[in-house]
Design a protein around this nucleic acid. Structure first.
Lengths: 107, 107
DNA sequence: AATAGTATTACGTCTGTCGTAGTATGTAAG
DNA sequence: CTTACATACTACGACAGACGTAATACTATT
């Protein structure tokens, strides 16, 4: 299991990645993170939803309500162009970060 | 340049790595991080010194005073066995983290 | 009727980083 | 000689992100 301390800098990037292809909502994103990471990273609900509001405040995503007939109403999120640009920046930063961290890792 | 947000989970690991071979002190560690990262990561002084006290509190390092004849007195830090074990854990976690993050990075 | 799964929000706490500033000494430039 | 720069560390308060806990609300299964 991965601790939140080491991945916290990438929560926003992970969320944006999952919104690249289509809008989605909290619960779904949460499941996708769990599945794509093979259960190695399970994001806390409060962390996820607070990330959504931060990303929206920064203009990287926009929100809208789904039209579910049954169940609790979902809040969907769609990535913006700014979000896409920010995501790309973070990907480039990841390459650098990886190089730097690996200089301090002894196998 | 790497933002502190993305590397913050590795500050302790980086510091412990630099103490593996020999005791060292704040200013030196700071320079080594800057050099080994090729100026891509410059740790803030306050971040570094607060990391020292956290690591010492957790038993991962111990401190002692150097016997400099001139200049301001240095506080040296030596890694403990617990620190070595913790460092190794973090290295293993890094491998996992890298795998997970890369699933969310589009090149 | 009870339980589990889906789906979100509110509130307060904690930790790590950062900005700013101050203390203290040695050395090189002008 | 005094100014600036590099060395070396500490104090204090602010802030952001993650977390624990709990509440709300609906559906499906047993």
């Amino acid at each position: 299991m991965i601790s939140s301390d080491v991945i916290r800098g990438y929560n926003d990037t992970i969320i944006l990645y999952l919104l690249l292809n289509a809008p989605s909502y909290g619960y779904e994103i949460s499941k996708q993170i769990r599945e794509l990471s093979k259960e190695r990273y399970i994001i806390k609900e409060t962390t996820l939803y607070s990330a959504f509001s931060r990303l929206e405040k920064n203009g990287y995503i926009t929100s809208f309500y789904g039209d579910e007939t049954g169940g609790k109403r979902r809040t969907y999120y769609r990535i913006t162009q700014e979000g896409i640009d920010y995501y790309k920046e973070k990907c480039e930063e990841w390459v650098l970060t990886k190089e730097v961290v690996e200089r301090f890792i002894r196998d």
